[in-house]
Write a protein that binds this DNA or RNA. Structure first.
Length: 591
RNA sequence: GGGGUGGUAGUUCAGCCCGGUUAGAACGCUGGCCUGUCAAGCCAGAGGUCGCGGGUUCAAGUCCCGUCCACCCCGCCA
C-alpha cells in the first residue's frame, strides 16, 4: 500500500502521526526555500510542505515537480502555524511535512488546467475526457450517480423487486424511435436491434410470474441529440403485477423521497402534485411544466370577443384559441425589444404577438379595439400591475400552447423567477390516442399496450369507431413524472385483456398479421394467463443531471457523445476493415 | 433536414463592422530569484497553418462563397 489515508481525510486528530499519502499534484507554490504542494486524490486536497529543515533531499527533488505528477509522500502531520490556516478547504487546519518523496509518474503539460477545465471548450474536454474527469466537480457528479443507483437498488430490493437482465441484441420494432441495428453474421441479411427500452421483455416477465421486476438498463435510440438526449442512455425500468396506477405512483414517490434523503439529505414532500394532461396544457402550455414559478397562461377568448380586434376575432372564428401571459415588469421594454420578442414568438411558430403595456393606463397599438373595462379585466385575470406587459397569442390551439409555454420559460429565466429546489409533479389522464395527420390514422400516445381508463373501456369496446370525438375522449391509464420542467419518466398500466388489446390494434389500424409480425411474441404470451400489470421507466441521466444541477446529461455520463453522436476521445464511430463487412454480407452505398 | 452561436498562441479570449507596420492580453509553459504560500510573488524568455478550401483585391485574421467541427434550438425522440 502506498498510502495510509485519502488526502481529503486528514484531520486535526491526525496531528503527530507519520503517514504516507499518494495523489496528483494539483498546485505547486515554490518559494525556493519552502515548497507547498496541494496534493489531490479522490477524497480531496491536502497541503504538503517541503522544507530543507525536514528533508534536504525531498526538498531538492520537489523543485522538479510539475502539475499532475503522481507522487507518494511520507511525513508528519502537523497543525499549521497560527495565521496560515486555510479555511476554504476541509483539511486547511493541518499540513504534512514531507521527509520522503517518491515520484510515481510524471505528466506532460496539460492541454487545459484541471482546476479551470470548466472554462475549456467542451470539445477539448471531451477529447481529453480522462483529464476532464479528474476535476472535483465531475468526480462529484459521478459519485452522486453511483450513490443514486445504489440507493435505487437497495430500495427496490427492500420492496421485493428482482433485477433481471434483458437482451441487448433484440428485435427491431418499427414503431417508435429509429433503431440502432447490428448485422447477424450467422443469419445473412438479418439484423438485431439494440433496445429502445426493455418494454416487451418486462411485460413478458410479468406473464412469467416474477411479479416485481426492475432493471437499471442502457437503452438506445438513433435520433438527433439534445442537451438532455444521448443516443445511449440509462433507464430505471420497472414493472409490477396485480397493480394499478396508484401502486406505481406510490413506489416511485417512495423511491424519490429516499433518494433525495439518502443522497442529498433533502426532504421531498410526498405525495407529489398531480395535474391532468389538459389542465397542464391550459395552465402551462405543455405536459412537463416547471412548477417552480408562476406566469401561468390565462384564457382570453371570452374577453377578446368583447373587442373589435380583427386578428383576435378571426382566430376565434376559425376555431382557434387566445391565451396570454404576464411579462412581469416588462412594460419598460422598448419597441425594438418587443419586436425582438415578436420575432422569437414567430420562430416558435406564431404569426405574431399582440401586446399591451400596463403603464399609465394601457399602452398598445391594439388597446383602441377594447373598452377600458375589458382591458382592466384582462389585466386583472393576468394579475398584471403597473409596469407589466401582457402578451397575447391568437392561433390554432397547438400554436398558442407551444408559443406561450416557451415564452413562459424564457421569461422565467430572464426575470430570474426560477428558484432553487425540486418540484415534482405527476401528469395523468393523457389521451389514449392522438391523430397523426401524415399517416391519416390514430396512434397510441404512449404505446399500443397502454390500458384505457376503466370507465373508458366499455366506450372503447362498444362505441362507434368512426366517431373521432369519442376516440379523442378516451383516456389512458398512463402517467408521466416531471421534475423542474423535465420529463424524467413515464409509464402506464398495460392491457392484459385479449379483447381490449385486439380493439386497440383495430383502432390503430394495425392488422392482426401486422401485429403478429411486430409484437407477436408478446401477444402470444398474453394468451397464457397474463396478470394485470403496469410499470414505469425513469431517465436516470436526466434525474442525476437535475440533482447535481448540471445543464446537460453529458456532465453526468463518464463518456458521452457529441451532437453528431461521436466520441471525440475514442474516435467512435469509425470505418471498419473490408473483411469485416464481407463477413457480414454488407456493402456500403455512400452518397 | 432547418435556424442560431462559436472556431485566432497549450488554454480562455481581444482584433473582424470600417482590409494596410512585426497579430495582442491574461492564464499556462521554460529559465532565474525567493522560508508561510494557498489563483503565491518578482524578473526574463519561448510559443501562431488566424479550422480547412476557393474567390475578390496591389494587399485578407478582417470582405464573399463553399466546407468541416463543437454547442443551443426546431423537426425527430411510440
Amino acid at each position: 500500500m502506498i498510502r495510509d489515508k485519502g488526502c481529503g481525510e486528514i484531520k486535526e486528530s491526525d496531528r503527530g502521526l507519520t503517514l504516507t499519502l499518494s495523489g496528483w499534484i494539483f498546485r505547486r507554490r515554490d518559494h525556493g526555500g519552502l515548497i507547498f504542494v496541494d496534493l489531490r486524490d479522490r477524497s480531496g486536497i491536502v497541503q504538503v510542505v517541503f522544507s530543507p529543515d525536514v528533508s534536504g533531499e525531498a526538498h531538492e527533488l520537489a523543485h522538479d515537480l510539475r502539475s499532475e505528477y503522481v507522487i507518494s509522500v511520507s511525513g508528519e502531520i502537523r497543525k499549521r502555524p497560527d495565521g496560515t490556516e486555510n479555511l476554504s478547504i476541509p483539511t486547511g487546519m493541518v499540513e504534512m511535512y514531507v521527509n520522503k518523496l517518491e515520484v510515481l509518474n510524471e505528466s506532460s503539460p496539460l492541454p487545459f488546467g484541471i482546476e479551470d477545465a470548466g472554462d475549456a471548450s467542451e470539445a477539448l474536454r471531451l477529447k481529453y475526457r480522462y483529464l476532464d474527469l479528474r476535476r472535483p466537480e465531475m468526480q462529484r457528479n459521478l459519485i452522486i450517480r453511483h450513490k443514486v443507483t445504489k440507493v435505487i437498488r437497495d430500495y427496490f430490493d427492500e420492496k421485493g423487486f428482482l433485477e433481471i437482465e434483458t437482451p441487448v441484441l433484440t428485435k427491431s420494432t418499427p414503431e417508435g424511435a429509429r433503431d440502432y441495428l447490428v448485422p447477424s453474421r450467422l443469419n445473412p441479411g438479418y439484423f438485431y436491434a439494440l433496445p429502445q427500452s426493455p418494454q416487451l421483455f418486462k411485460q413478458i416477465l410479468m406473464v412469467s410470474g416474477f411479479e416485481k421486476y426492475f432493471q437499471i438498463v442502457r437503452c438506445f435510440r438513433d435520433e438527433d441529440l439534445r442537451a438532455d438526449r444521448q443516443p445511449e442512455f440509462t433507464q430505471v425500468d420497472l414493472e409490477m403485477s396485480f397493480t394499478d396506477r396508484e401502486d406505481v405512483i406510490k413506489v416511485i414517490e417512495g423511491m424519490m423521497k429516499k433518494l433525495f434523503k439518502d443522497v442529498m439529505d433533502i426532504e421531498i414532500i410526498t405525495p407529489f402534485e398531480r395535474l391532468g394532461f389538459h389542465e397542464s396544457m391550459e395552465r402551462f402550455g405543455n405536459d412537463k411544466p416547471d412548477l417552480r414559478f408562476g406566469l401561468e397562461l390565462k384564457e382570453m377568448a371570452d374577453l377578446s370577443q368583447k373587442g373589435s380586434f380583427k386578428v383576435f376575432l378571426d382566430a376565434l372564428q376559425s376555431g382557434g384559441r387566445i391565451k396570454a401571459i404576464n411579462g412581469k415588469g416588462m412594460a419598460n421594454l422598448s419597441r425594438r425589444e418587443i419586436d425582438m420578442l415578436t420575432e422569437e414568438a414567430i420562430s416558435f411558430g406564431a404569426k405574431g404577438l399582440a401586446w399591451i403595456k400596463v403603464k399609465n393606463g394601457f399602452e398598445s397599438p391594439i388597446a383602441k379595439f377594447f373598452p377600458e373595462e375589458i382591458l382592466k379585466e384582462m389585466a386583472q385575470r393576468l394579475e398584471a400591475e403597473e409596469g407589466d406587459l401582457m402578451l397575447f397569442v391568437a392561433d390554432k390551439e397547438k400554436v398558442v400552447f407551444d408559443v406561450l409555454s416557451r415564452m413562459r420559460l424564457e421569461f422565467g429565466k430572464r426575470l430570474n423567477l426560477i428558484g432553487s429546489g425540486y418540484k415534482f409533479a405527476w401528469i395523468t389522464d393523457f389521451p389514449l390516442l392522438e391523430w397523426n395527420d401524415e399517416k391519416g390514422r390514430f396512434e397510441a400516445m404512449h404505446h399500443p399496450f397502454t390500458s384505457p381508463m376503466d370507465d373508458d373501456i366499455e366506450k372503447m369496446l362498444t362505441g362507434d369507431m368512426n366517431n373521432k370525438e369519442l376516440l379523442f375522449s378516451l383516456r389512458a391509464k398512463s402517467y408521466d413524472i416531471v421534475l423542474n420542467g423535465y420529463e424524467i419518466g413515464g409509464g402506464s398500466i398495460r392491457i392484459h385483456r385479449r379483447d381490449v388489446q385486439r380493439k386497440m390494434f383495430e383502432l390503430l389500424r394495425i392488422s392482426e398479421e401486422e401485429a403478429k409480425v411486430k409484437f407477436g411474441f408478446l401477444l402470444d404470451a398474453l394468451e397464457y394467463g397474463a396478470p394485470p400489470h403496469g410499470g414505469i421507466a425513469l431517465g436516470l441521466d436526466r434525474l442525476v443531471m437535475i440533482m447535481v444541477g448540471a445543464l446537460s446529461i453529458r456532465d453526468v455520463i463518464a463518456f458521452p457523445k457529441t451532437s453528431k453522436a461521436s466520441c471525440l476521445m475514442s474516435g467512435t464511430p469509425s470505418t471498419v476493415e473490408p473483411k469485416q463487412l464481407k463477413e457480414l454480407y454488407i456493402k456500403t452505398d455512400l452518397p
